[in-house]
Design a protein around this nucleic acid. Structure first.
Lengths: 330, 330
DNA sequence: CTGAAAGCGCTTACAG
DNA sequence: CTGAAAGCGCTTACAG
């Protein structure tokens, strides 16, 4: 890194000297506590600070007070807008509470995730929020060893001790299947992920319970990317194996399906009715617009942050409402 | 914030004691310098550190060494995938250099941007990377007062002193217009932003220079959101004022156009040929797939980071290649 | 209500 | 090659 030009930083001692008081008092007025300061003294301190352009050094504060005001946020896969949207809400909520956020992308790698946790702990974060997915391992022991609270969002490791904030995925999948049934589709296929643990697993299980005779014949899989879903639907068209109705586990997959379908001249919703279970903002402006069950990303983020501040907080169930648009055939 | 459980953190002094040496030596082995350590001593220190599970405290290190290893990254608008992709590349590049990144979203607000800069400076970031857009003001004076290097990406304030990393937007717009001309469209419209300073302004200017007689009649404007572009194209269809060929300043707008066009039964590319000037990953999987000039986001991010480490670095021109897909009519 | 001083966990001259 | 010690800029008992 380019060495920072060595600006003479003005410190509390400078302010104290100018205000004719001690650093203790300066600290008390900068922090509004923990002890009271006479009004006249406070004025002098504020004036001195303003004249000198004093800015408290958060690093020094952190070393002494053992709290940095920084939260680490680790994403399973930041290119995926679902995680990106979740991250934005977490970041905004934390910002409102005057916390800074250190961000990292685990890229579906347990090793990278562990490494990020290590580095964030070394940076003395006050808490860790992990927006996880299949494949991440439990980092609770790491965090606990450092005495740092941790909360998982969207997906948590099996049998993990850390709290998990998740939407009602079971109900969402049921609603999607039921809606497609209402359009007269007796057989509704499901596009799952490569392994589907956690939330996607619960979505798939809920679908499966309603799928009828031979769910295996109606279960599709591909990675959580547009490219993979695009390739999948092209293959199905080529094989003349396209289902009449499909629920996708994620928006990324639904968007890939739409793209591949257009390329093959497969009409959505007329030849293929589609509902996606994420409902990120992107889903509102596809061609055609996607009917979705919308994950309550904002509420999930807020609950996660609340949990960071208050481990006793009991997040209410977060419902994922059905949002009817065009892709289902309505 | 929930008070962190007061784990007894093990410090350098603990390691030194156990290894029968001084904290200075422990520091030298943990940092591989700046002074040499006898092999035998080094082994003892490493063993002691491992046995005690010692993790260096970056905050203490930062206070003493005046360098945190943290870079602040401020985004003009994080929901916009263009900025999001840029951010990911910046984050990854910084991660490769073992830097941590503090992230913030300015949301097109100069006031929020200033506030973030203040807070990041208080956190003693080593540098600031600002992915800016119309409306941000120049925060160079703030950063300079703190002696912190700053680099703008995508868009920089008018007359700013800080370095700016930007693609060749003029050439990109020219290529797009020329390609559409090649499809026989004499009149090519342009969808710009609300104000279009900076990069979008240069895109629009390059288009305008080729637009022919009455550019005003072919110049459209809307916000950089899918929703706005969606609404715009519906209005144009209703008014029977849809151009035959259109270049959009951004992918968000192009995606909104596709969505609105589908809803109105306007066929792309048959009735409306379209090229977008961003070329984010999203553009590859729309319906139809967008022909774009692809901004070299990865190169831009790498150049920006290089500039943070070496202010003398001269970023090479970053070309935005034409990527032909379906929306242009090819 | 206020001041003098210790100490957070490191790094780095200074001295050997 | 190594140790004893100062000091980064704060916060917070301790003493008045």
């Amino acid at each position: 890194m380019a060495p920072r030009a060595d600006k003479p930083t003005t410190t509390m001692a400078d302010v104290a000297r100018r205000a004719g008081t001690s650093t203790a008092v300066v600290s008390y007025v900068m922090n509004d506590g923990p002890r009271a300061v006479a009004a006249a003294t406070r004025e002098r301190v504020l004036a001195a600070a303003a004249e000198l352009g004093y800015r408290p050094n958060r690093i020094a504060r952190a070393l002494r007070s053992r709290t940095t005001g920084v939260v680490g946020l680790i994403l399973a896969d930041s290119p995926n807008p679902y995680f990106g949207d979740l991250a934005r809400h977490v970041e905004r909520t934390l910002d409102e509470r005057d916390r800074l956020v250190l961000i990292g992308n685990a890229g579906y790698s347990a090793e990278r995730q562990r490494r990020l946790v290590d580095r964030f702990l070394a940076a003395q974060v006050d808490a860790l929020v992990i927006v996880s997915a299949d494949g991440g391992e439990d980092v609770t022991p790491q965090a606990e060893a450092a005495g740092v609270p941790i909360v998982y969002v969207h997906h948590g490791p099996d049998g993990g001790r850390a709290p998990l904030v998740e939407a009602d995925n079971r109900h969402a999948a049921q609603e999607a299947v039921t809606h497609l049934r209402g359009h007269g589709h007796a057989r509704v296929a499901f596009l799952s992920g490569p392994h589907d643990g956690g939330p996607v697993g619960r979505r798939r299980a809920a679908w499966q319970a309603l799928a009828g005779d031979d769910p295996d014949a109606l279960l599709l899989r591909c990675a959580y990317t547009r490219a993979d879903a695009d390739a999948l639907i092209r293959r199905l068209v080529a094989d003349d194996a396209v289902p009449r109705a499909l629920v996708t586990a994620t928006d990324e997959q639904a968007i890939g399906i739409l793209s591949g379908a257009w390329a093959c001249g497969l009409a959505v919703p007329d030849e293929l009715a589609l509902i996606s279970l994420d409902g990120t903002p992107e889903s509102a402006h596809t061609a055609p617009a996607l009917t979705v069950t919308r994950q309550p990303l904002r509420a999930m983020a807020e609950h996660a942050v609340e949990l960071v501040f208050d481990p006793a907080f009991q997040p209410p169930a977060a419902h994922a409402p059905l949002v009817v648009r065009r892709s289902c055939g309505c």
